[in-house]
Simulated scan of single mutants.
Amino acid sequence: MTSKVTYLGGLRTENLHVNSGNTFVTDAPIDNNGKGEAFSPTDTVATGLANCMMTMMGIKARDLGVALEGTTAEVTKTMAADPRRISKIEVVFDFPIEADAKTRKILEHTANTCPVHYSLHPDIEKIITFNWK
């Protein structure tokens, strides 16, 4: 088992990562009958893309001897109706390091081939921006 989700009521869930014991809460968004006091389930999907891309770049950067600490990603999720779904995810990476063109190309390719990127439905538009120092 990977995780256990418990419905807390009020359109809120608690999510337990079984191996580590870490938890997080989700809330329905304001535009869908919720309070919007925590990540929504679709927020976690969009944010998961940035997490996966950054993790995969971190693995490759370690192999290349490049330090990515301090790198950030800003995520913007756009919803569509009929059916209600994620229609677009924008991720903007800001790297506090300088890297040569070859290293950038390798890391960007690694990010764009992460498992979450491949797992998202092809109808979800993905706009990825890499800002290097």
Rank of each mutant, 00 (worst) to 15 (best):
M1F: 08
M1E: 03
T2S: 03
T2R: 04
S3C: 05
T6K: 06
Y7T: 00
L8R: 02
L8A: 02
L8S: 02
G9D: 04
G10E: 00
G10W: 00
G10H: 01
R12V: 01
R12E: 04
E14H: 01
N15M: 00
L16F: 10
H17Q: 07
H17M: 09
N19A: 12
N19R: 06
G21P: 08
N22A: 14
F24S: 01
F24A: 02
F24P: 01
F24D: 00
F24Y: 11
T26V: 04
T26A: 03
T26S: 06
D27Y: 02
A28L: 06
A28R: 03
A28H: 08
D31K: 00
N32E: 11
N32F: 14
N33L: 13
G34W: 04
G34V: 09
A38T: 08
F39G: 01
S40C: 02
D43M: 10
T44H: 05
V45P: 12
A46C: 12
A46P: 13
L49T: 09
A50L: 11
C52K: 13
C52Y: 10
C52A: 14
C52Q: 15
M53N: 06
M54G: 15
M54W: 10
M54F: 12
M54H: 13
T55A: 14
M57R: 03
M57V: 03
I59K: 11
R62Q: 15
D63M: 07
L64F: 05
L64A: 11
G65T: 08
V66Q: 07
A67M: 05
E69D: 15
T72W: 13
T72Q: 15
A73H: 08
E74D: 15
V75N: 12
V75R: 13
T76A: 14
K77Y: 10
T78D: 11
T78Q: 10
M79L: 15
D82G: 08
R85T: 13
I86F: 06
I86E: 10
I86K: 07
I89L: 06
E90G: 05
V91W: 11
V91D: 13
V91A: 15
V92F: 02
F93G: 02
F93N: 04
F95H: 09
F95A: 06
I97A: 04
E98Y: 14
E98K: 15
D100V: 08
K102G: 10
T103E: 07
T103N: 11
I106C: 07
I106K: 04
I106F: 07
L107I: 09
E108Y: 00
E108I: 05
T110N: 04
A111Y: 07
A111W: 06
P115G: 10
V116N: 09
H117E: 07
H117F: 06
H117I: 04
Y118R: 13
S119Y: 06
L120D: 03
L120N: 04
H121P: 09
H121S: 05
D123W: 00
D123E: 11
D123I: 08
K126F: 07
I127V: 13
I127C: 04
I127E: 10
I127A: 09
I128Y: 01
I128N: 01
T129C: 01
F130N: 07
F130I: 00
